[in-house]
Design a protein around this nucleic acid. Structure first.
Length: 563
RNA sequence: GCCCACAUAGCUCAGCUGGCAGAGCACUUCCUUGGUAAGGAAGAGGUCAUGGGUUCAAGUCCCAUUGUGGGCUCCA
């Protein structure tokens, strides 16, 4: 870079997962075309097989060297090392440099022996990155690249990138006609009929599960006087993320969370210890004013709906309730063949509330984790300031990790700020614990993740179109409509392709839409009132009477298997 | 919000150093009535994101705005 762009100032250049990056301050913006010439220059250096020579300098000499070479960022790093050492009461550390050919860089190392030992690589993208990730510092130009020890590994990685691109939910959302985005409302999805079918199916499955686990559902206002947010603390800490609206001279805000309002339902009457646990589910529409540059498809939006719930329990009920939540999560992720992993985040240093209560709650959560037999990791001090929490992660089909949901055992925010109480068996007022939890998390994000996980080939039970009836000639159309009615009568989502296309084309289109079953109807089937199913995997099954088919498929849908 | 790139038909994209806006798919109509991934023909479809500027002439060059994408998490 220093050859190609004289005056280049070097930032940092670490190795990262699957590759590396390097940040530069350059005399002009890089374009994607520059990457090719930089790659060529790198290839020349690799071809020359320069040895990497390590040298150790004392701190003053190191600082002087980089100052003399016009590298202020390196000098800053050295100064920071020096003050960090001073703060720890240590002498300024020696620093190491690596040289190959004429180029010398500050680097902790280690390095490969020489440039010739560097494997096949490819520069991927240029991006802006703040110096030290600080918005107040200069924006540097970052070059991302990937490097592997063999050409095959490089190609496999590039294939994985390409596969991820093809599965991108934003792309599949258009292809499968699920949703769209429009500039009249950035960061918010417009759900099309097929996307909404997925939505309703997921919501329906969760409602059924909730009913089984003793939940009730509530619904609270979206637009609320800011006084509520002052009481909850959001007005102080979260205001810049809230949409504020003037209503007759008063500030109102669209709710960014459901929790504060659920307490109004709780407090609407005096609660007995016999009433608990109270489990309130709410599919509330939330708005968060995310910064424009952070929006991303369905995974980072300004408007979304969570499968939220608040469970108010006595302390002695906490462990059982958490165990039940793990059971719900396990069942839910099982519908998609996803394996949840749990991470327990404990009390941070700036936690609010009684330390003893924290300790008790953490003990109970740990007990529940152990008792339920799930494997879990621990992140000490990573809880929120009002609650220890358990984060749930899954890995998708491409090995990418997603954080799905959070379960928080709130001792402070809802119970104390909103003065929640129940009357115990001695007639004394007590504080309940409020568990905040979501299982899908945001429905938008969850649908994005399963779209990519299944590459659009949704499991049969939640596919937006479960079967397409394919009449071979248009004299079979009436029978096709009849068959579809039978299937719809069994609760299945079925379309009829009565277009002018040939059967081959109808099958092709259904394949492209990743429809699980194509039900072919020709003279033979119409005469026998059967249909010949073909699966999207290309398997042709034997023709089956309509009613038997409807019963078989609706049973399959009820099973919620992940395929 | 900040840096860079991008925005052409419903979708995917072409359109060279400024000189009459294109293709495939989808759509409409007609022919074809078929057996497991594309039958044939014709037609319609555009304020080239929006606003301004340069120019005899702007999809193309410049500026602004809006939106979208890659990033701003990995710390010598």
């Amino acid at each position: 870079m220093t050859d190609l762009f004289p005056g280049t100032r070097l930032g940092i250049g670490p190795a990262v997962r699957d590759g590396f990056y390097y940040d530069f301050e350059l005399p002009r913006p890089l374009t994607p075309e520059d990457l090719a010439s930089i790659e060529q220059r790198m290839a020349a250096s690799i071809g020359a097989d320069h040895r990497f020579e390590r040298a150790v300098l004392d701190p003053d000499a190191g600082r002087a060297f980089f100052a003399a070479h016009g590298q202020p960022y390196k000098v800053e790093i050295l100064d920071d090392l020096r003050s960090a050492a001073a703060a720890a009461g240590a002498a300024p550390p020696e620093v190491s440099t690596y040289q190959h050919g004429p180029f010398i860089d500050l680097c902790r190392g280690p390095h490969v022996a020489s440039t010739g030992a560097i494997g096949p690589l490819k520069l991927l993208s240029v991006a802006g990155a703040y110096w030290r990730s600080d918005e107040k510092r200069p924006m540097l130009q970052r070059i991302y690249g990937t490097v592997w020890s063999t050409q095959e590994e490089l190609e496999r990685y590039l294939w994985r990138r390409e596969e991820a691109r093809k599965r991108d939910h934003r792309r599949l959302g258009v292809q499968l006609d699920l949703f769209s985005f429009h500039d009249v409302c950035p960061g918010s999805a417009f759900w099309h009929p097929k996307g909404q079918r997925i939505w309703r199916t997921l919501e329906g499955a969760m409602r059924e599960l909730q009913d089984r686990y003793g939940y009730d559902e509530i619904s609270t206002p979206i637009l609320v006087n800011h006084r509520l947010w002052e009481q909850s603390g959001h007005w102080g800490h979260y205001k810049e993320n809230m949409f504020v609206v003037d209503v007759e001279g008063q500030d109102y805000s669209l709710k960014p969370m459901n929790c504060p309002e659920s307490t109004f339902v709780y407090r609407s009457r005096v609660r007995s210890y016999r009433d608990l646990p109270l489990r309130y589910a709410e599919y509330g529409r939330l708005h968060r004013n995310e910064r424009s540059g952070t929006l991303h498809g369905l995974t980072r939006v300004r408007q979304f709906i969570q499968d939220d719930a608040h469970v108010f329990v006595r302390p002695d009920q906490l462990a059982d309730e958490i165990r039940a939540l793990f059971e719900m999560a396990r069942e839910t992720y099982g519908w998609f063949g996803l394996e949840p992993r749990y991470v327990f985040a404990t009390k941070p240093d700036d936690a609010l509330g009684d330390p003893e209560a924290w300790e008790r709650a953490e003990g109970l959560i740990r007990e529940a984790l152990d008792a339920s037999g799930v494997t879990y990791g621990v992140k000490p001090k990573d809880g929120t300031f009002y609650a220890p929490k358990i984060d749930i992660y899954v890995d998708d089909a491409l090995g990418r990790e997603w954080q799905m949901a959070t379960v928080q055992a709130d001792l402070v925010m809802l119970p104390e700020r909103f003065d929640l109480t129940y009357i115990d068996e001695h007639g004394q007022e007590q504080r309940p614990i409020a568990i905040h939890r979501a299982i899908y998390g945001s429905l938008e994000r969850f649908i994005a993740i399963i779209t990519e996980h299944f590459a659009g080939a949704f499991p049969f039970w939640c596919a937006p179109v479960q079967a397409v009836v394919v009449p071979i000639a248009d004299r079979h159309n009436d029978a096709a409509i009849e068959l579809a009615a039978v299937l719809k009568g069994h609760g299945l989502r079925v379309d009829v392709d009565d277009s002018q296309n040939r059967m081959q084309n109808k099958i092709r289109l259904a394949q492209e839409q990743k429809v699980p079953y194509m039900l072919v109807l020709g003279d033979r089937e119409v005469a026998a009132r059967t249909a010949a199913p073909r699966t999207r995997a290309g398997e042709q099954q034997v023709a089956e009477p309509w009613l038997a088919l409807a019963e078989r498929l609706s049973a399959e849908a009820r099973d919620r298997r992940p395929s």
